[in-house]
Nucleic acid binder design. Sequence first.
DNA 1: ATCCTCCCCTAC
DNA 2: TAAGGTAGGGGAGGAT
Length: 800
Amino acid sequence: MASGGESTGAKSRKYFDDRQVSEEQGKEYGPSEFGNFQQYYRNKKIKLQNHDEILKNSGPSDESQKDHPQIFKGCCIYVNGYTNPSITELHRIIVLHGGKFSQYLDSKTEVTHIIASSLTPKKLVELRTSRVVSPAWIVDSVNQGRLLPWHDFRIGIPRTSQKFLETRKCDSATTVPPSERAPLVTDSRQSAKTAADPGFLENYYSRSRLHHLSSWKAELRSKYQTLILNHEQQESRTDSKSSISPSERDEPTQRVIFHVDFDCFFASVALRSNPELQGMPVCVGNGGSQNAEIASCNYIARKQGVKNGMWMQQAKRLCPDIVCMPYQFEEYEVASNHLYSVLLESGADKIEAVSIDEALLDMTTACTSEGATDIADRALLLSQGIRNRVYELSKCTVSIGVGTNILQAKIATKLAKPNGQYFINETEALEVISKLRISELPGLGPSMESAIQRKSPSIRTVSDARSLGKARLQQLLGEKNGEKLLNYSRGIDDRVVGSISERKSVSVEVNWGVRFSSIKQVEEFIKSLSQELYRRLVKLGSRGEALTLKIQVRAPNAPVDPPKFLGCGECISISRSTSLSGASIDIDKIVHAALPLLRKMTMVVSDIRGMGLQITKLAPFNDDRKSTPKEQMSLDIFAGQEDSSKRNSLVSRDMKFENGFDLEYEDIDNDELLSRPDAANESDTDAPDPDIVVATDSNDDTVYLKMLLEAWLNDTAGYQYGPHDDDVKVFQDYLSYLVLQKKNVCKAHDLIDWLRFCLGSRMQNDEMMDKAYYVEESLYRWLDVVCSYEKDIFAMTGFR
DNA sequence: ATCCTCCCCTAC
DNA sequence: TAAGGTAGGGGAGGAT
Ligand SMILES: Nc1ccn([C@H]2C[C@H](O)[C@@H](COP(=O)(O)OP(=O)(O)OP(=O)(O)O)O2)c(=O)n1
Ligand SMILES: [Mg+2]
């Protein structure tokens, strides 16, 4: 711990009025108690047995044997795809117990619950706001004679904390309140208002434009990073000379940089979908909310002073006629794909994705090669072509600025907009730049401007700043920033297009809707964040060596309720970091590292307004740790893989995945944090919904794998502690390999169900029982994580 | 000097 | 009501 001071909030950039309200709640740090897991497992066991009972006895004959509690009264249930019990059986049970059975899913308003064993990614997206539950919900509810909370049986979407609490809550007598039987339109996702509510994170992210912006950017970066590399390789190969890029080949060749950017992107998409709004001031945001932010507004609105990022309230004041349209996140992706597909064909030497609607091109070669024509003419011709093609495809206008470096290209774009193009020469660029306010330079903002003005109040423009000289600027802004400003003020910018380096960090952060009333809720939310962080790490094939927890805490004089509903208001930020040991990472490791960090912070729980977790010092998942040899049989599942290309590298614990990451695990602490119950599907061991298979293994070794699993369980059941955690991990890794590499979700489900079946029949004592269920839960949780990639994968592979 | 931790700032 | 995320550059000041 070096300088451990918290920020004072005095410097905070957020600007809200003061009101002094003091609130209760000190800190009450106790051991994080997540309760009695033994108890949970025992319940689960009973549940399973009862499940079997029900299945056995649910023949048509027992219909009259007793009266049936009308537990499904008010529920309208639709059954999707293959299920166990079968659809007819479910139909019978539902009707028998007072429920309504729906043959169609036409009107979601009538159907209250959807039963499915598994969902195709498409359906998953389609039904993401619906109550989709496993058949076990029906079976278990009937079995217990009361309607169980449906979210304990959700499928498709990885649930985290909430299940945990609710499972325990419903242990005894909780039945579902009438509101739970409300039609699907009022789904629980809508009540996930604050971070203390279950399902908050997913719900929140699905609506956050900034989250979308960030993930799109990351995606584009990783996509075009490699593409650029390939492109460059081709270039230098045809050059048959060296690896010098074309733009650096001739001595001081002036670069030609294009900055391509959709005009008021979100607003343009909104106008495209609603042509009747042409000519009106339009913006995109959560309309009808006075403190909602405007993501984008069209140029008509801008004329009246409206700006991106402004709150609705203020925009309405400036422009009372402004029309607010909702977000259309999928449409933005489509339009962006159009843009990038054109850019890839543009003949650029290099491409750098700046954002979903914006990119930089190094067009030096294309503009200078057959040096005949004027560079400006050539550039404008090329940019006109790009703009035409993008418009043809997307029906949205783009503007292009052309300059000799990134800075100048961006300046040119400002002059080009809207729906235009501009070639700026050095002299003009210098003129324009000189007149800009300091904060208008890209990369400098209001803070730097005021940092200068604090000492030298007369300095406003870039040319003013230039007159201060390098030393003075560095004194005011720091070494690098001072130099940057001076260079920019002279029109100089050395940044190279496409020189984005490897990712250095992965983080997950929420600063809206964060309101806690107990430390337990805080810890629970940290778990949700950890799971999300882990999900992203797995997807990237990365692990990290350092973890940082950051929280936002209400500033001392900030009102308890900031102007923005559930916003963070003015905050101070506190962060603490720690190192993560080992070559592997998993959720529990993250949680175990994060909770002590939380404990190092001092704050009033109810004043927490934001939380984030960041992983730094990224490294590939790798195998720099030898596995501890064990006596008992280990699960050599990869060795049995009938895939010759991977056979050699994917062996046992030293598995190397195609995409360059290894999976390796430390031993797990099987304690309270590990064993978060999931809504495991209490159903089908048979063939799952065939829809879910994307690519089938040509030589199906499922039978062999099942034998292997069974043998492994047979052997390890004899040991006191049952299957070794490492082997469980191996199985998890294999599942992840199946889903991510082989795109065979079906097989993963199949194997996991088989394992469940084997486990169920093999447990002799309580300890083994606990172990078995730990294994089961652990695998299901993993599959949840893995399956949440399905739609990404399908998007990537172009699967319809 | 250089590294590390805990910030702040900027962009979309 | 409202969905204020996230990666990277960078600075201050202490530890090495
Ligand atoms: N504070 C902001 C700024 C931008 N965006 C989103 C909406 C924008 O449409 C998109 C692109 O940002 P731009 O800065 O390119 O702004 P626009 O495309 O809206 O306008 P223009 O590029 O014409 O200036 O990012 C956002 O949600 N919130
Ligand atoms: Mg734009």
